[in-house]
Design a protein around this nucleic acid. Structure first.
Lengths: 194, 194
DNA sequence: GGAAGTTGATTGACTAGTCAAGCAATAATC
DNA sequence: GATTATTGCTTGACTAGTCAATCAACTTCC
């Protein structure tokens, strides 16, 4: 049943299947066969479209990062002031679409992958830089040179809450509580300033 | 050259080699052969003493956790008041002996392992509970029911700083800065209370 | 007829775990 | 004090299994 124009469809469904598979198996059992099977195709086809397994996983990572970036941009667009911008970044980070088991597992796997794959490390470094930059843009006008320390703290807090959630398999992620923890920190940093 | 009484020596050196190997290769390349080779023995010997690969890795984890526990206890013993106890836990968490590349990589691997190994998850849950309990003991007398949120924040901050450091391969971990970030948070929570 | 899409079967590399045998130090026996 | 048995230690070679990647062939569309 070969229909023309399947390339983007297959690529998308394989990427989706890879993320789901990572989420289910906890990131190490992911074989190309399993990903392909979940996407409803043969493993050979996965290789046909991606070449290597690493390429599939990198595409999955790029997909997650780009969805996250879009969410952050959308949240920032609706923010009224500096404080609002910081809160927007935090809320976007824990939006239910992001803060769900499959994506959380995928993030953990990215950190592992970055240990050996330079391309994974590069993508993660871009995320890290962008997050820091977004936070600083909101914080610096409000707290001046304290901003650096605070941005580092907020970023680490976000990453830490993700990683801790990955441990609680079974318990569904609680976006509201995670957001509350980070915003509490932000409030302490900003105090009652404008 | 078989001398009697080698069992504890071999077990210790294999555990040490496992941690070093995890640190070098970033946690996934660790094969029993490599661990054994680094410890200067054959892979069969590693199986003789540990039975399974998982058992080697669990022993490595237990070793790291027990050293960390001892460090925390020692730091707590020297603390004068509640605030000192919280600071002691934080400082112990980033003591140079703990906060070094091999151990940081090992922690990352524990989180990954916990996804599938119930025993790993159990050990990590114990660590999580103990950390929380240590923090609460110091925080609760000072901030009452705000303590829960603060303890969760401090714990996530510690985990997050570890995970972020795992990314900075090459750059040596900066214990002082990590400690400063967390203590800054603690100070904001405690304010200028006694 | 050619191009795009797809797969079953295969290959080659790697790995955890097993096994039987060999070696050195101690203990038992005379 | 010398011989022998026992025990702990160690290994090379092997098994069985997995997985990424390749290939040759088949199918449908234009």
């Amino acid at each position: 049943m070969p229909r023309i124009g399947m390339k983007p469809i297959r690529r998308a469904s394989l990427v989706e299947a890879a993320i789901a598979e990572i989420g289910d198996s906890g990131s190490l059992n992911v074989t190309v066969s399993r990903i392909a099977q979940r996407a409803g195709v043969s493993s050979a086809l996965a290789h046909h479209y991606f070449g290597t397994k690493e390429s599939i996983l990198l595409s999955a990572m790029r997909h997650i990062l780009s969805v996250y970036s879009a969410d952050v941009r959308a949240a920032l667009a609706g923010a009224a002031d500096h404080r609002g911008r910081v809160e927007a970044v935090v809320r976007a980070s824990f939006a239910p679409e992001q803060f769900r088991p499959a994506v959380i597992s995928a993030w953990l796997m990215f950190y592992v992958g970055a240990q050996r794959s330079p391309e994974t490390a590069r993508l993660l470094a871009i995320y890290k830089r962008r997050l820091r930059s977004n936070l600083l843009a909101g914080l610096r006008p409000l707290v001046g040179r304290e901003a650096e320390l605070a941005a580092e703290g907020v970023a680490a807090l976000i990453d830490g809450l993700y990683i801790r959630q990955s441990l609680a398999r079974g318990a569904p992620p609680d976006s509201a509580e995670a957001t509350a923890v980070v915003l509490d920190y932000v409030n302490r940093v900003l105090g009652s300033r404008p």
